[in-house]
Design a protein around this nucleic acid. Structure first.
Lengths: 264, 264
DNA sequence: CGATCTATTTCATAGAATGAAACTATATTG
DNA sequence: CAATATAGTTTCATTCTATGAAATAGATCG
């Protein structure tokens, strides 16, 4: 690393360079999330590729702010993330305005309506309104899901270039969403036909689950949000879901407008 | 600022000094949460007392990691906080082990059982199991609440020194939890008698709400967690709540043990 | 269209962040 | 239980990053 001038390689997480200490701190923070259990200082230092003293100093500051907790010698994500998440859910303009829109689609179609945001090479569930046949008992708000599986993931990369697709594939394997035999060709075969504005999936990310999804257009750049209709296979057919597409399209349109308008 | 050597004053958020850029970044992040609406660069710079370029650079890095989102010229908390919060709720040893304990207290007493963590000079709701008479429709997980009001807050500062109490008072006024006429004397009058291991409150933080709370002991240092039993006044009396104290005491004991044992 | 505010880039400098090494504490093992 | 290995913490000199002033570009408003 640090070979060329500015970081634009496909590896070291988000951009390297620029505010090194801050980037490294966020790296540590991200690592604590990935590792789904308390971590020791030396583990973190090794995994993140930085020296012990540096890692220790970072952890101490994060701890001062409650972003990290420590018990004995092990560190974990701290309680300060909860108010942050709450703030996001209550104040983010998109999330807030999406709720009634999802509500309406859900009641119109009887299906579960969800909003996803792209984050790096994954997507995150940020809002959901259940339909008549709920999908699960625990609401997986904030769950990291693949871009490569499920309608709501695929529609986000439907217009990606070959180069981007390759990155997506690499990242999906690294994140454990796909096994090492996964290739851009396999991915392409799942993506919607060039003309289509929606994606469909069945038994793709989770067995027994069907879904359709549409991207939310933001005035410029690749789409980074999508909304979907989902149902357990027992409660709907491919036809049922696809019948919901026009309604979904309308919802996506409304959301796009809200994004333009209430930009504030 | 920067007058004396090392920061231990009661103002500039958590400790100053040490990893300046990281501390400042977290300051910006915290400010974005406080301000419950998108913020412009110049606002943030002014509020946090740092230069425009610095603030901009911080925001860019935070944005790279999804901790901050930008639309046009305004910044807000980003979607990356959701996976973080999820990780906390699913993996934090205390939260995880508290759930069944709260569950049991709630079903034993029929009251709502909650777990709070102290964060700075506030407390945060981290887990809750509803009783027979739920308190609200929205679950205020992650909500910032005062230490100065409500049983679960007061018990966390019941053993604090005069000095600490003064800090608590100052912070509570600053956070808008109390008005400027608030004093340590007023606070003292609310706190439990020296001997008591539990706190009681009625109509204190919210009207029509009664509660009792007990601190969760961690082997050393001030307590930073508490559990409470709460009920709307229509569904319980002071006597009902206080009858739950032994059960609550047992629950707190079990949690303490878990903290010692499964430290990992 | 000029004036005022805000955002962004550039750049030289101060000082913060860094890791090697020394040191301490804690765990492991014979 | 001693001896040894491993993990955590502090210190400190050096380097390079973070910083803000100033210049530039862009937006907003009268």
């Amino acid at each position: 690393m640090t070979s060329t001038h500015s970081g634009s390689s496909a590896e070291d997480g988000p951009k390297a360079s620029n505010m090194r200490s801050l980037s490294r701190a966020l790296e540590v923070f991200a690592e604590l999330q990935r590792a789904e259990r308390p971590q020791r200082l030396s583990d973190l230092a090794r995994t993140c590729g930085m020296s012990l003293p540096t890692t220790l100093r970072i952890l101490r500051v994060l701890q001062d702010f409650g972003m990290v907790s420590q018990t004995d010698k092990s560190y974990r994500i701290g309680p300060a993330v909860l108010p942050a998440a709450r703030s996001f859910l209550e104040n983010d303009p998109l999330v807030v305005s999406a709720r009634p829109v999802l509500q309406q689609v859900a009641s119109q179609t009887g299906l579960t309506a969800s909003l996803y945001t792209r984050l790096g090479f994954e997507r995150i569930l940020v809002a959901r309104v259940d339909g008549e046949a709920p999908l699960r008992y625990d609401l997986p708000l904030g769950k990291r899901l693949p871009l490569t599986r499920g309608a709501a993931g695929k529609i986000l990369i439907a217009t990606a270039s070959a180069d981007e697709l390759q990155q997506v594939v690499t990242a999906a394997i690294a994140a454990g969403h796909e096994d090492s035999s996964f290739t851009p060709e396999v991915l392409r075969s799942r993506l919607p036909e060039p003309g289509a504005d929606y994606a469909y999936s069945a038994d793709e990310r989770a067995t027994g689950v069907l879904s359709v999804a549409i991207a939310v257009q933001n005035r410029l750049g690749r789409p980074s949000e999508s909304i979907s209709l989902t149902s357990p296979v027992e409660a709907a057919s491919e036809a049922t879901l696809k019948a919901g597409v026009p309604e979904l399209r309308r919802a996506a349109g409304r959301l796009s407008e809200l994004l333009e308008g209430s930009v504030y």
